[in-house]
């Protein structure tokens, strides 16, 4: 347990020393200015422009920063053979994997708090809290996928590319399912049926990220979001990604 908490804590210390937080902070400040600029241009609904633009872009920035930090941190550990040193101690591969992921998830929580704080001045506090919790869960999903990809592929470029593709697909999968059921998709064509079934099958094993961290939650008068499905979706999918990652990690010769 001590090794677990040490590895998780070292991950957070690494994030502090490599100034990832500073990068995120600068990006969030720039986004705030951009949102203010857009709100200034809008003739009406300037508050909606300000909140919507900041929230949507901050979410993307946090995902991108998380992805890059996870991939770069793990790739360096693997390339410098630091992992061999760690595993030479009384630390199992499973412990290392879960501890690193916990550290990245904790970093995601810090990022979510950073991104949510300015929104407290722009939107109702309960909605901002829900948005922040959802963002933290989304970042944990992204960190899990990116960690598994990096440990498996061992390359930053490949890991980030695959994780980005996963992220885009998970954000679009609900719309794709609906489109495959739309009237324009000809059900008499076998290709249409096959594609429709394939999309539904892919949707079964992906989290519906388009239902996470929506900027629409922050509009005044919006219904309170139900975070339970978001939490369940995250937990089940993270468990799957951990299982895949551990399976591959245990099979590989370090």
């Amino acid at each position: 347990m001590k090794a677990f908490s040490s590895i998780a804590r070292l991950t957070l210390i690494e994030a502090w020393r490599t100034r990832v937080w500073l990068l995120a902070l600068v990006a969030l400040v720039v986004l705030l200015l951009l949102a203010e600029f857009a709100a200034g241009l809008a003739i009406t609904d300037s508050a909606g422009y300000r909140t919507g633009i900041y929230a949507a872009l901050a979410r993307l920035v946090c995902v991108l920063v998380t992805m890059l930090f996870v991939a770069q941190s793990l790739a360096r550990e693997l390339a410098d053979r630091l992992l061999d040193l760690t595993l030479a101690r009384a630390v199992s591969r499973g412990q290392w994997f879960l501890a690193r992921l916990s550290g990245f998830a904790a970093g995601g929580v810090v990022l979510a708090v950073l991104a949510s704080t300015p929104l407290l001045w722009l939107a109702p506090a309960p909605a901002v809290c829900a948005w922040g919790v959802s963002l933290a869960l989304e970042l944990a999903v992204v960190a899990a996928v990116c960690q598994t990809c990096t440990v498996t592929l061992r390359q930053v470029t490949s890991a980030v590319s695959v994780t980005s593709a996963f992220y885009l697909l998970a954000r679009a999968i609900d719309a794709m399912v609906l489109m495959s059921q739309a009237a324009v998709a000809d059900p008499t064509q076998w290709t249409g049926r096959v594609v429709g079934e394939a999309v539904r099958l892919i949707a079964l094993v992906l989290p519906a990220l388009d239902r996470f961290t929506s900027a629409a939650w922050l509009r005044s008068g919006a219904d309170a979001p139900d975070l339970l499905p978001v939490a369940l979706d995250s937990a089940v999918f993270i468990a799957l990604v951990i299982a895949i990652g551990l399976f591959d990690f245990y099979r590989s010769e370090a």
């Binding site: 799957l240 551990l246 399976f247």
Partner: peptide, 15 residues
């Protein structure tokens, strides 16, 4: 580990 993988896949499909 393989048991966890199978269980996680089944859980994800069920979810």
């Amino acid at each position: 580990v393989p048991l966890l993988l199978v269980a996680a896949i089944l859980l994800q499909l069920a979810w």
